[in-house]
Amino acid sequence: MGSDYIAAALAILTGVGMAVVFSALARFVGERRVTRAKQIPYEAGSDPVGSPRVRMPVRFYPVAILFLAFDIEVAFLYPWAVNFASLSCAGPLVKGTCRAGVSWLGLGALALFMAVLLVALAYVWRKRAIGWD
């Protein structure tokens, strides 16, 4: 297992390294000739109007907030999903099947969690914060 973490680190290094090499190639191999017209921000050929540091519609912000809320819910569900088989067995789990009957613990936990999630979803839906209207 230890060498797997080293391998993952090597993979990260390779990915970043290749991207950096590409950047360096762009910087040092490509030629540069600066002219005045090139310096103007591209706006389909006409002179730019105003600054690009404009305010963006507020509709983008609820999306970001909802993402935080829901993606954290998903992250909480991962350990539950992985352990679901053992949660749903009253006894020991042998070769993927229950020895001693079914337990409703896993499903009950999910139902409770999802109920809270659905209340939140219904609320933002009613408030028209979800979607794009």
């Binding site: 993606d71 998903v74 991962y78 992985v82 679901f84 088989a85």
Partner: peptide, 25 residues
């Protein structure tokens, strides 16, 4: 940004069904 974060939630949620089935990540 808005598109990619929106669909990331669904992506994470959709594979949950498979993790329930496999019991591993």
């Amino acid at each position: 940004a808005s598109q990619m974060i929106s669909y990331e939630v669904t992506m994470g949620m959709a594979v949950l069904a498979m993790f329930v089935c496999y019991g591993t990540l």
